[in-house]
Design a protein around this nucleic acid. Structure first.
Length: 348
DNA sequence: CGTCCACCGGAAAATAGGGAGG
DNA sequence: CCTCCCTATTTTCCGGTGGACG
């Protein structure tokens, strides 16, 4: 049991693996590469990539960074983790100066240093999962970045929100950022199949993956991150071959591990809250209201001897789970039921 | 028409920490 | 060490919402 007979190289199944060849995103890739092909001169381009989770946005941007000439500076900022203007500035500061800076400084102190360091060198800043940044702070960072050394700094903003970027920023920010927008469509079933097969070939022993198993995964989700998690879970589960049966069997465990991965950068309370929703949705079929979630959450906190956060605070955490795509929420701003959110688990 | 439901979400403040200068 | 600035996380406070029901 200590050795796995199916996986020969675990890396290609990991979510942060960047394959040599990116499949089925030709159009999007062309726009991105094209935008940065002439960036070695005195120019900069801003991009806005948006589309559903697991549609290749992050992958493409990471690949872009890899392929940039070494004369360029680059910085990848996952805003799920760096969710305030200060934290993001701190991350950019580190990338630009190679020095870590603590809390307690003025934002402008970091801004000035970043400005100095980027005045003579082209810099690409990728802000991934910007919804968290926009949720917790306002759009100050985008305004700043769009107006600082604007011939040198390029911003790539990534969001899984479908809305038009123009509606997501104030006009002064948008008009100054003026990003080229690339919309990512979800992968089709065939594309998902091909991508997962490509990874499987690199990662798994020959003959260890049944076609039907892969077909099942590809027809169940268009989120390739989820598909990869699934494939990996199935591979770890069996010592023989990955059959459709194995894949079906690990479905729930796989959801669990996908959620764990998504919640990695978040707090224990996010997890407790998620557990509360899980509990409620397994015991009843209807939609769940935010009030019940809070009650369940306090119950779980008490049994685990954890301090309970306020109603107001939990409301924000719930929003985080929604942005992460772990829950769906339907807002009622009044009405017969009063103000509330109807919540549904995405991965039951 | 008035009231009630039930909590959303903005604003401010409390609490706890760091950095720089005196 | 004190003071005054900053950030980060959470709490406190509360106005506001819109459909049902009397």
């Amino acid at each position: 049991m200590s050795r796995n007979d199916v996986i020969s190289d675990p890396y290609p199944l990991k979510l942060d693996y960047i394959p040599k060849k990116i499949l089925d995103r030709e159009k999007e890739k062309a726009v991105v590469t094209n935008a940065f092909s002439d960036i070695t001169g005195d120019s900069s381009r801003n991009l806005y990539l948006h589309g559903p989770r697991g549609s290749g946005k992050t992958l493409l941007s990471r690949r872009l960074i890899e392929k940039l000439p070494s004369s360029l500076n680059s910085c990848y900022v996952p805003c799920s983790k760096f969710d305030t203007e200060y934290k993001a500035l701190r991350r950019i500061y580190k990338s630009v100066t190679n020095q870590d800076v603590g809390t307690g400084h003025h934002k402008s102190e970091l801004q000035i240093e970043i400005e100095n360091r980027t005045s003579a060198i082209n810099t690409v800043i990728v802000l991934d999962e910007i919804d968290f940044l926009l949720e917790h702070d306002d759009e100050g960072l985008f305004y700043y970045l769009s107006r600082t050394n604007s011939d040198r700094i390029s911003v790539v903003a990534i969001s899984s929100n479908q809305a038009d970027p123009e509606t997501r920023f104030e006009e002064r920010t948008y008009s100054s950022l003026l990003p080229e927008t690339v919309s990512f469509e979800p992968y089709t079933g065939e594309q998902t199949y091909e991508i997962l097969l490509g990874r499987a070939k690199k990662s798994l022993q020959a003959q260890s993956l049944h076609r039907e198993a892969l077909t099942y995964i590809a027809s169940s989700t268009q989120n390739v991150s989820l598909g990869l998690t699934w494939l990996k879970k199935a591979a770890l589960e069996t010592s023989d071959a990955i059959t459709e049966e194995v894949v079906r069997k690990v479905k729930e465990q796989m959801y669990q591990s996908y959620v764990d991965i998504q919640l990695d950068d978040f707090s224990d309370h996010h997890r407790l809250l998620y557990n509360a929703i899980e509990d409620l949705s397994s015991s009843k079929d209807e939609v769940i209201h935010s009030g019940e979630i809070y009650d369940k959450y306090t119950e779980i906190c008490h049994s685990g001897e954890v301090d309970v956060l306020t109603h107001r605070r939990v409301s924000d955490l719930l929003k985080d789970l929604e942005i992460l795509g772990l829950i769906e929420a339907n807002y009622h701003y009044g009405g017969s039921k009063g103000k509330t959110r109807e919540v549904k688990l995405r991965f039951p």
